[in-house]
Amino acid sequence: SDPSEDRAPESARVGNIPSSTSALKVPQLKVAESAQGPAAAHTTDTAGYNAMEESVSREKPELTASTERVNKRMSMVVSGLTPEEFMLVYKFARKHHITLTNLITEETTHVVMKTDAEFVCERTLKYFLGIAGGKWVVSYFWVTQSIKERKMLNEHDFEVRGDVVNGRNHQGPKRARESQDRKIFRGLEICCYGPFTNMPTDQLEWMVQLCGASVVKELSSFTLGTGVHPIVVVQPDAWTEDNGFHAIGQMCEAPVVTREWVLDSVALYQCQELDTYLIPQIPHSHY
């Protein structure tokens, strides 16, 4: 159930021909089969995070001529859309010479989310990475209204306002976009420790780096000194050995919190207090 199309920051360009055919990675995205229709094609874990990302398996898109002007500035990904909605975005992107990729990268400028009429969405990996990267996180209605009015409308009017977990109007995407000089995790050293489900560890690490944190791979690698705040992030329900995560405190002095601390902080683009996310640790033995 991992969102495989989000696994690594590679891009698939639509609308320009790469210098070599080997560089072309066409979105071959799968549809989750469901008797209840597209709305039930998501699996949500206890964290309220949509693990099964969206989309559609299609034939290789038709490439435009390399001489045609390509908008190098805009690059989009989509999240939560049905196959039909994805194809509408594809046509919109081609019309406006926008790069459409299946994986979010540093070059991505827009994340197009499936939302309700009030621009509230589910939480997906692309949603988190879009906010963390200060990108435009907009409703699919931006595409449909632009098509209806036959011009590209202003993104401000379609920015995602909230999500089904953290609140319907928290304005996290807007706050992140306007606060890239004040990253929420700066001054923190974060170790993403142990197993994680539904989200590859490297993507979680990239997320906290985008928010200004330094990533530490091992508990023994924390910088011990003033001005640096170490934090260990774990996902308790992913551990097979009972309560192993309670013993992390015996290996390092850092506070240990659940992954929800990261996800909530990123969604709201406000660093949350650790208290409600802390995992009790077995104290050091004193002999």
Results as ranks from 00 to 15, higher is better:
Ser34Gly: 06
Arg259Ile: 02
Thr201Arg: 13
Leu268Cys: 14
Leu63Thr: 09
Thr258Lys: 14
Met52Ser: 10
Tyr90Leu: 08
Ser57Cys: 09
Pro27Ala: 13
Ala65Leu: 12
Met251Leu: 13
Glu155Leu: 08
Thr99Phe: 14
Ser34Leu: 04
Ile282Gly: 14
Gln36Ser: 06
Glu155Gln: 11
Asn166Met: 04
Ile190Arg: 00
Arg94Thr: 12
Cys271Val: 05
Val137Arg: 00
Gly37Pro: 07
Ser221Val: 15
Glu178Ile: 08
Asn154Leu: 11
Arg13Asn: 00
Ile98Pro: 01
Val165Glu: 03
Val70Asp: 14
Phe196Thr: 14
Thr99Leu: 13
Thr226Lys: 06
Met251Glu: 12
Gly249Trp: 11
Gly162Tyr: 00
Arg259Lys: 05
Gly134Leu: 05
Gly225Leu: 15
Val14Gln: 08
Asp163Phe: 00
Val137Ala: 01
Tyr193Asn: 10
Gly37Ala: 09
Ala93Val: 13
Ala8Phe: 11
Ser66Ala: 05
Lys217Phe: 14
Val165Arg: 03
Gln36His: 09
Lys91Glu: 13
Lys114Leu: 06
Ser4Ala: 14
His170Ser: 03
Cys192Arg: 01
Phe119Pro: 01
Val112Leu: 10
Thr67Ser: 14
His170Gln: 02
Val233Gln: 02
Thr46Pro: 06
Asp157Gly: 13
Met87Glu: 13
Val266Trp: 02
Val233Ser: 05
Leu88Met: 08
Glu253Pro: 12
Val70Gly: 10
Trp142Thr: 00
Pro283Leu: 06
Val70Thr: 12
Gln235Thr: 14
Arg94Lys: 06
Gly80Glu: 01
Glu59Val: 05
Val143His: 00
Glu53Pro: 14
Lys135Ile: 07
Val215Met: 05
Val31Gly: 12
Met113Thr: 11
Val228His: 12
Gln180Ser: 14
Asp237Gly: 03
Arg168Gln: 06
Thr197Met: 12
Tyr49Ser: 12
Ala23Phe: 03
Gln28Leu: 13
Glu54Ala: 07
Lys91Phe: 04
Ala51Phe: 03
Phe141His: 02
Val262Arg: 02
Val137Gln: 00
Thr108Gly: 00
Ser4Val: 09
Pro61Thr: 12
Thr43Lys: 02
Gly80Ala: 10
Lys25Ser: 06
Glu54Tyr: 12
Val262Leu: 03
Ser1Gln: 11
Val137Glu: 00
Phe128Met: 01
His229Pro: 13
Ala39Ile: 14
Ile279Thr: 05
Ser1Leu: 06
Gly133Ile: 04
Ala132Ser: 13
Glu118Leu: 08
Glu59Tyr: 04
Val165Pro: 01
Glu85Tyr: 14
Pro283Gln: 04
Ile104Pro: 02
Pro27Val: 15
Pro38Phe: 03
Tyr287Leu: 08
Thr82Leu: 05
Val26Asn: 06
Ile98Lys: 04
Gln36Asn: 11
Arg161Ala: 05
Thr109Gly: 01
Phe119Ala: 05
Glu53Leu: 03
Ile98Ala: 11
Leu278Glu: 15
Glu106Leu: 15
Glu260Leu: 06
Thr101Tyr: 05
Ala32Gln: 08
Lys72Gln: 09
Asp6Met: 14
Glu118His: 09
Met74His: 10
Asn198Trp: 05
Asp157Pro: 09
Glu218Leu: 11
Thr258Ala: 10
Glu205Lys: 05
Ile184Lys: 00
Thr108Lys: 00
Phe245Pro: 13
Glu118Val: 05
Pro195Arg: 12
Asn16Phe: 01
Thr64Leu: 14
Leu100Phe: 07
Arg58Val: 10
Ala35Ile: 06
Val120Leu: 02
Lys217Ile: 10
Arg123Pro: 01
Met207Lys: 02
Val137Trp: 00
Lys217Leu: 13
Ile282His: 12
Val78Gly: 11
Lys135Asp: 02
Pro83Leu: 05
His284Tyr: 12
Met113Glu: 00
Cys252Thr: 14
Val137Pro: 01
Lys135His: 15
Lys72Ser: 06
Ala40Pro: 08
Ile248Pro: 12
Met152Val: 08
Ser146His: 00
Ala51Arg: 08
Gly48Glu: 12
Gly187Leu: 02
Val26Ser: 03
Cys121Ser: 08
Ser220Arg: 13
Val228Thr: 08
Gly15Glu: 06
Val215Gln: 13
Leu268Phe: 10
His286Tyr: 08
Asn169Phe: 05
Ala32Leu: 13
Ala267Thr: 07
Gly130Val: 01
Leu63Ala: 15
Gly212Gln: 12
Pro83Ala: 07
Thr226Arg: 13
Ser19Thr: 07
Val160Ile: 04
Leu81Phe: 07
Asn198Leu: 12
Gly15Val: 08
Ser22Phe: 08
Gln36Arg: 08
Ala32Ser: 06
Asp6Thr: 12
Asn169Glu: 04
Thr144Arg: 04
Ile282Glu: 11
Gly80Ser: 07
Met76Ile: 15
Ser55Thr: 09
Asp157Arg: 08
Ile279Gly: 03
Gly167Val: 01
His229Ala: 14
Ala213Met: 02
Gly187His: 07
Phe185Asn: 00
Gly167Leu: 02
Thr240Phe: 15
Thr44Val: 10
Val257Cys: 13
Glu178Met: 11
Met207Gly: 00
Arg182Pro: 13
Leu219Arg: 03
Ala247Lys: 03
Gln28Arg: 10
Phe158Met: 02
Ile282Gln: 11
Gly212Arg: 04
Glu85Ser: 14
Lys91His: 09
Pro255Val: 15
Met87Phe: 08
Asn16Ala: 07
Arg177Ser: 01
Glu253Asn: 13
Gly130Arg: 00
Trp206Ala: 09
Ile147Cys: 11
